[in-house]
Amino acid sequence: MRNAFGQPQSVLVLGGTSEIALSVVERLVAARTQTVVLAGRNPSGLDLAAQELRDKGAQSVETLVFDADEPSNAQGVIDQAFEKAGGSIDLVLIAVGQLGDQDLLDNDPDGAAALFTTNLTWPVAAMTALRSKLITQGSGHVAVIASIAGVRVRRANFTYGATKAGLDAFTQGYSDSLKPYGVKVQIIRPGFVRTKMTEGMADAPFSTDVGPAADTIVKGLSSPASVIWSPPLLQGVALVMRSLPGVLWRKMPS
C-alpha cells in the first residue's frame, strides 16, 4: 500500500533497465518499497539491475522480459507483472523508450514507425491494459516518463520529440480518466540527463546527472503535482520555449 507520503511498497518498472527509473527505484527501496518487478527487453541487464536492488534491501525483485515492438503483448506483460508482484502494485513507472538517430530516421520510414511503436504505441497499449487493474485494485499510482523534447519538438530530434508529445498528451487524458478511482497519474518531463541513452551526445542546456534527476523525481512522486519537471527550473524554460516565434525557435542551437 502507499502510505501518507505516497511512498509505495510495490513497484513495477516498464523499461526496467532505464537508468533514471532504476535510480528512482533505488531511492524508493531505501524508503518503503519491498517488492519490485523489472520488465524490459534485455534479460542480462534486468538480472544485473535486480541483483543491485536486492543488495540495496528489496525483499522481492522479479524480472520480466518483453519487447516493446509488439503492442499486442502489452496485456500479457501487465497480467504477468501483477502476478509476479503478488497481486497488487502501488506504483507503475513507465520508462520505455529509445532516442533514435534523427539523421537516419529522416529517410527511414520503417525506423520512424518503429520508434513510434516503442515509445508511444506500446506504452499506450500497456497503460490501457493497466487501467482496469488499477480500478479493481482501488488505488494506485502511474508515473510516465515523457520528455522536455515533447514540449516543443526540435529539428534535431523531432521524431523522438513527437513520440513523447503523443505520450504526454495521452497521459493527461488518462490521468483525468482515473482521478475518480483514486489512481494518481503523473507525467515526468526530464530535460537532458547524462545516461547511456544520451552517451556521446553534447550536453544540452540544463543537463543533469542521473542522481539529481532521480532525487527530483522521487520528491515529485510524493507531491500532488500533475507534472514533475527535472530539473524543476525547466518548468519556466518550457514556458519560454512554447511562446518563442518559429523563426527564433529554429535559430536555437541544437
Binding site: M1, R2, N3, A4, F5, G6, G138, S139, Y181, G182
Partner: peptide
C-alpha cells in the same frame, strides 16, 4: 481524517 492516501471501496 488526515486526508491522505485515498482508496476506492
Amino acid at each position: 481524517w488526515g486526508n491522505t492516501a485515498p482508496s476506492l471501496a
